[in-house]
């Protein structure tokens, strides 16, 4: 992807706009669809933005026993997510190429989670500790699935660089819808777990027995909480964007289109995914804690099959 100077400026403007707007619009879509399915009017679509502004203007309450880990948690999370948003090809266009190795990306995700877990333990409340314990358990289970899914297309493209994987340059991959569909499904299932969404954790509940992510950020307030919410929204946009990229690659006729139409189809796909997630959350119930590994097993199944196909395909070649 070599742009001219004018193209680079356009790419910067477009990606800044979409990096700012898409996460808020995605969460707005999810909340709106869920509300309509429950016969409610629902919040306005920019409600997440209003909430963030309100939180940023509030005063922060900090316990006297916490250390710097807790106070810097929001900033660490937000900066990691901004770095990810710049380096991961979660949109079709990208202003800079920072080199997004897939292991680098996955462990940046893990780093932000690590910092949240430490902050939750640092606050010293019992809820924070058990939320952290659950979060770590879940992420240990889901990490292999995500690594394997992305690595299996990495095997096909002979590269672990996400830019190379998701560029439309390797025409030999244009006719391999099956593996792209499998990987896209694996990423979206893993994303539901990573984002603490419905079948694993209910993002709207504050019932102490069931919450996972909410328990960890219970002690945060004001700008700290706002930055955490921001990074959670960005994380959602990045993961939905990655799986939408996979689904986009599974449509053979997209490969020959221009980058503008690819980008438009990709954004539409992201909103389709968001609506599907909202519908799924409206009809599904939260799983029992014991059943969560079974849900993750389905995700792992998709990645395992994709990995088998990739290894088998490259052996024959």
């Amino acid at each position: 992807m070599n742009y001219g100077a004018a193209d680079t400026v356009v790419a910067w403007i477009v990606s800044l706009f979409s990096g700012f707007l898409l996460p808020i619009l995605l969460i707005g879509t999810i909340r709106k669809v869920k509300a309509r399915l429950q016969n409610r009017v629902g919040p306005p679509i920019f409600q997440a933005l209003f909430d963030l502004v309100k939180l940023f203007r509030k005063k922060q309450t900090v316990s006297s026993t916490v250390s710097w880990i807790f106070k810097w948690n929001g900033a660490i999370n937000l900066s990691v997510m901004l770095l990810l948003a710049l380096s991961v090809p979660w949109l079709c266009y990208k202003p800079v190429s920072l080199g997004a190795d897939l292991f680098f990306v996955l462990y940046l995700l893990a780093l932000s989670r690590f910092s949240t877990v430490l902050a939750a333990m640092d606050a010293g409340s019992a809820f924070g500790a058990f939320g952290a314990s659950r979060e770590v358990t879940i992420s240990t289970l889901v990490e292999p699935a995500l690594v394997l899914a992305l690595a299996s297309i990495g095997i096909l493209t002979q590269s672990s660089d996400l830019d190379a994987i998701f560029s439309f340059s390797n025409a030999a991959l244009s006719n391999t819808s099956g593996i792209w569909l499998l990987v896209g499904t694996a990423v979206i299932l893993a994303g539901l777990v990573e984002l603490s969404r419905m079948p694993v954790d209910d993002p709207t509940t504050h019932l102490e027995l069931t919450m996972v992510h909410e328990a960890m950020i219970l002690e945060c307030s004001g700008p700290n909480l706002a930055m955490l919410e921001c990074s959670q929204l960005l994380r959602m946009a990045i993961l939905f964007g990655l799986s939408a990229q996979c689904f986009l690659h599974s449509i053979p006729c997209v490969w020959t289109m221009t980058i503008v139409s690819q980008g438009i189809i990709h954004v539409i796909l992201m909103f389709v995914i968001a609506s599907c997630v909202a519908t799924f959350e409206s009809v599904a119930v939260k799983l029992q804690w014991r059943k969560v590994p079974e849900f993750i097993a389905y995700c792992l199944t998709m990645s395992l099959i994709a990995g088998l196909i990739a290894v088998g395909g490259s052996l024959v070649k």
Partner: peptide
């Protein structure tokens, strides 16, 4: 080589068998 239409159909069959084992 990987997953043209016929291969997708037959592997789709074995994929559903795998899902049956999981459900």
């Amino acid at each position: 080589m990987i997953l043209n239409l016929f291969e997708m159909v037959v592997f789709g069959a074995s994929f559903t068998a795998i899902l049956i084992a999981g459900a």
